Amino acid sequence: MKRLVFIGDSITDCDRLWDERPEGLGFGFVRMIYDWFQESGQVKEPVRIFNRGNNGFTAFQVKAHLEEDCLKLKPDVVTLLVGINDLYMHIGGAGGYGAEGYGRCLETILQVIKEKNGAAVILMEPFVFPKPLEYAAWEKPLGAFRNELRRLAKTYETGFLPLSDYFQALGRRYSLDELTVDGIHLTEKGHELLAAAWISSYMEGKEYV
């Protein structure tokens, strides 16, 4: 059985601690991926899925909790989405890391997974929508975070989902209100589209560069 672990911030978490179903996967894209595996019949090897996203987490906090939230679960594939809280704290002067510090934390995470576990890793870009409009000003500094992520994905030969580009493209088909509730968190449709992107990448083998 292949073990898939999802780690990151609130977008991954999606109220998992309030999900009373046995898997405790929350109400977002991780739950939708699980449902797809259960219902599609397209995957011969069974999987077990773990949601270890944590509301409010930065890359530093993901790193600090890596053993508990990820490594002890002995994953075969680790999916990581984190960064928007790092940017929020950095812009707001509440500590946090800029793009360089963010990159250092991610690199440590990748090194530890490689050395202690050897799981495949899928990195997903942090993203933001221009709703409210002031979030449009976040796009440039967030680009520096994404550059770090892309560099590390190439260096460590991880899988990579360019979610910023993906949601920008979807913005030509869907209104912002259909995709996001507040400019950062996703609507149910947004989670469906994120789950679809992950499944497509996973099934086509694109996560293994």
Rank of each mutant, 00 (worst) to 15 (best):
Y97N: 14
K114C: 06
Y208P: 03
G83C: 04
A120C: 12
V30N: 07
N51W: 08
K189A: 05
A153M: 07
K189L: 15
M203N: 14
M203G: 13
Q38R: 09
Y34M: 08
G92N: 15
S40F: 12
W198S: 00
R3D: 11
Y202F: 14
Y156G: 03
F145R: 01
R151Y: 05
L71M: 05
L71S: 08
T79L: 05
E39G: 09
E188D: 11
N147S: 10
Q61A: 09
G93R: 10
R150T: 09
P141L: 10
G8K: 07
L152V: 01
V121M: 01
G92K: 15
T79S: 14
L80W: 05
M89N: 12
I109H: 15
R48T: 15
L110Y: 03
H65P: 02
E107Y: 00
V47C: 08
M203S: 13
A137K: 15
I11M: 12
F160C: 04
K114I: 06
G93D: 06
L186S: 03
G28Q: 03
A197W: 00
D69V: 01
I49W: 00
V112E: 13
A120D: 15
E23S: 03
L4E: 02
G171K: 11
L17H: 15
S164G: 10
I7R: 02
E148S: 03
H90Y: 15
T158I: 00
I33L: 12
G41E: 11
G8S: 10
R31H: 10
G183V: 09
W36Y: 14
A137E: 14
H65T: 08
